[in-house]
Computed example of a mutant assay.
Amino acid sequence: MQQRTRSRPINLWLYLGVPVAVAVALLLLELTSIDMDIANLFFDPAAGQFIGRHSYLLETVMHDRVKQGVILLGLISLAAFGCSFFFKRLFGWRRELGCLVLALGLSTAFVTPLKKVTQVQCPWSLTQFGGTETYSKLLEHRPATDKPGLCWPGGHAATGFCLFGLFFMLRDRKPKLARAAFCLALVAGSTLGLGRMLQGAHFLSHNVWTAVFCWLIGLGSYYLVLYRRNPAQVPASEQRLA
């Protein structure tokens, strides 16, 4: 029988309240032009394109190679989870590995369906930046077009922010490593998102929304697979009914 690791207390006001507050702030920012203002900073009118549009570092290294690296991490995690049913050394980590596999899978799988539903245009496709499409915000009506947009939420940012799953996997057993994993996910997602903004592939809000979704998916996976309230956290009335 697999021994259960005692779950550390979790502050939902922090873990759930902060991302919800960020989501509300993003909705309020729909009333401003901040996305377009920031995108203008990365656009070179003289060249008629975004400053990172054809960057080898941004396109080949940060976009293609990093994505391949995260796919490899997902495959290794899945293989380790499968092996945990057969090798004793991995028995005790089975649930943690299952949580990681679930978080990584959902954090990357949700992007494409939402892109197809929302049909938000990329900055580089807009008339303001040399394209042919009309700009519309997330909650606005989409203008008629022969080529619907596929740019919300930020897909490549999810390549970094999906690593929040590592934080939740390690949270109860290795708190210090968990904090390092949180920083890694935050820096990786932000860096990859910024890279795509420099290329004109996304607005700032696209990437921040991705961070919110990936965090909530990681939190949900943790609650579903790993989190168990300690007896001291359970009210006496519930303990009597248990």
Rank of each mutant, 00 (worst) to 15 (best):
R6P: 03
R8A: 15
N11C: 04
N11G: 08
Y15F: 14
P19G: 07
A23Y: 01
A25V: 11
L29W: 14
L29G: 03
L29Q: 13
L31Y: 04
T32R: 12
T32D: 07
S33I: 06
D35I: 03
I38K: 00
I38G: 02
L41K: 12
A47K: 14
A47P: 02
Q49N: 13
E59I: 05
L75M: 15
F81R: 00
G82F: 00
L90H: 06
E96N: 11
T108L: 15
T108E: 14
L114W: 12
V117I: 15
V117K: 11
Q119P: 01
V120W: 06
V120T: 02
V120P: 03
W124C: 05
L126N: 07
C151G: 04
A158V: 11
F161H: 06
C162D: 10
G165Y: 01
L166K: 07
F167K: 02
L170Y: 10
R171H: 01
V187I: 15
S190W: 10
T191I: 05
T191S: 09
T191G: 07
T191D: 05
M197T: 06
Q199K: 09
H202P: 09
W215R: 14
Y222F: 02
L226P: 08
R228I: 03
R228D: 01
S237V: 10
A242M: 13
